[in-house]
Structures are given as structure tokens and as C-alpha cells.
Simulated scan of single mutants.
Amino acid sequence: MGVVTYESEETYAVPPARMFNALASDNLPSKIFPDVVKNVEVLEGNGGPGSIKKFTIVEGGQVKYAKHKIEEEDKVNLKLKYSVIEGNDLADYKLEKISYEHQWRASPNGGSICKTICKLHAKGEVEVTEEQAKAGKEKVIGVVKGVEAYLQANLDVCN
């Protein structure tokens, strides 16, 4: 099984604790992305580490669902680790799983900096292409930018 890893570091206008809390939330994805995420359901666990969450995607989208396993949720150090363990994206790209790690810290301007590490775990001898890795990176950045925009428009959320 091949593993492709990429890292990115992006700056956001929203403070790190708000960004972390929004990304760790079970009820915000459907509010932030109402045209994409129908709901988030905790299938196993209490929503924290070890839990499995199912994201149901609106029928018009390409992906019908994705299951995430929460591996770490460190509220003190603002670190979130999870893996996509099931869903259409994995099947389409012949991946066993996709692991994400987000670490938030304050930026000098009052916003935040997020370092993201993503690992694409291919099934068997399948090779992950640079295009797949780039598409995954852009998708994650798009999601986090969407969270940022929602928090900027809703100043009372995740304080």
C-alpha cells in the first residue's frame, strides 16, 4: 500500500479556537454547507476520539456519504486528527483511507494559522497521483475557507 503525504499551511482571519471548534462540531457542517451536507450522525462513540461519524451528502452532489473516524481532538493544543474511512471518494480513487491532521495556532494579526497534514493511503499496489493529492488538498482548503466565511458572517458562533 502506497502513502502520499502533503502538508500545507494557510492563514485565516478567524481566531484559532473558533476555527477548531467549528471544524470539530457535529451540527455546523449542514449550516455552513447547506447545499452539500444534509447531516452528520455519530454512529459510534460520543463524538470524540474513537467515534465514527457519517456525513450524508445532498443527493445532487457526487458523494453520497463519507464516514470519518475521530482519532484525536485536543482542545488545549487545538489539534484535530481524523480519517475518512468509508465513502464514494475512497472507492473512486481506490484509497483505503485519507488521514487529516489540523493544528491551529494564533497568527500575529489576531487570526489563525492552520498546518494541515494529509495522507492518502492507497489500496494494494495502486499509486496515488499528484493530481489526486492536489485535488484533495484544494478540497480541504475549500472546506476550511467555507468555515472561515461562515464564522466571519456569524460572529456569535463558536465563541
Rank of each mutant, 00 (worst) to 15 (best):
I52W: 12
K53E: 11
K54Q: 15
K54P: 13
K54Y: 12
F55H: 13
F55P: 13
F55E: 14
F55S: 14
F55N: 15
T56A: 11
T56Y: 12
T56R: 11
I57V: 15
I57A: 14
V58A: 15
E59G: 13
E59R: 05
E59Q: 12
E59T: 12
E59A: 15
G60Q: 14
G60S: 14
G60Y: 10
Q62P: 06
Q62C: 06
Q62S: 06
Q62G: 07
Q62N: 07
V63P: 05
V63W: 11
V63L: 14
K64Y: 10
K64A: 13
Y65K: 04
Y65C: 07
Y65M: 09
Y65A: 01
A66V: 14
A66L: 15
A66K: 13
A66S: 13
A66R: 08
H68M: 10
H68W: 06
H68V: 08
K69N: 07
K69A: 09
K69L: 10
K69H: 07
I70M: 04
I70T: 04
E71V: 03
E71L: 09
E71P: 03
E71W: 03
E73L: 09
E73C: 10
D74K: 00
D74M: 05
K75F: 06
K75I: 05
K75H: 11
V76Q: 10
V76K: 11
V76R: 09
V76W: 09
V76E: 11
N77E: 10
N77Q: 13
N77I: 10
L78T: 00
L78I: 05
K79C: 08
K79I: 03
K79Q: 08
L80H: 05
K81M: 09
K81R: 09
Y82K: 01
S83D: 04
S83T: 09
S83Q: 05
S83F: 03
S83P: 06
V84S: 05
I85C: 07
G87D: 02
G87E: 05
N88S: 03
N88R: 01
D89G: 01
D89F: 01
L90Q: 06
L90M: 08
L90T: 07
A91G: 02
A91H: 01
A91P: 02
A91C: 01
A91V: 03
D92I: 00
D92G: 01
D92H: 01
D92Q: 04
Y93F: 00
K94P: 00
K94V: 00
L95V: 02
L95W: 01
K97H: 03
K97F: 02
I98K: 01
I98G: 05
I98P: 00
I98N: 03
I98F: 08
I98Q: 09
I98A: 06
S99A: 05
Y100C: 10
Y100P: 02
Y100L: 08
E101S: 11
E101D: 12
E101K: 10
E101C: 12
H102C: 07
H102P: 06
H102T: 08
H102S: 08
H102Y: 12
H102I: 07
W104S: 12
W104A: 11
W104R: 12
R105G: 10
R105V: 15
R105S: 15
R105E: 15
R105A: 15
A106Q: 05
A106V: 04
A106R: 02
A106E: 09
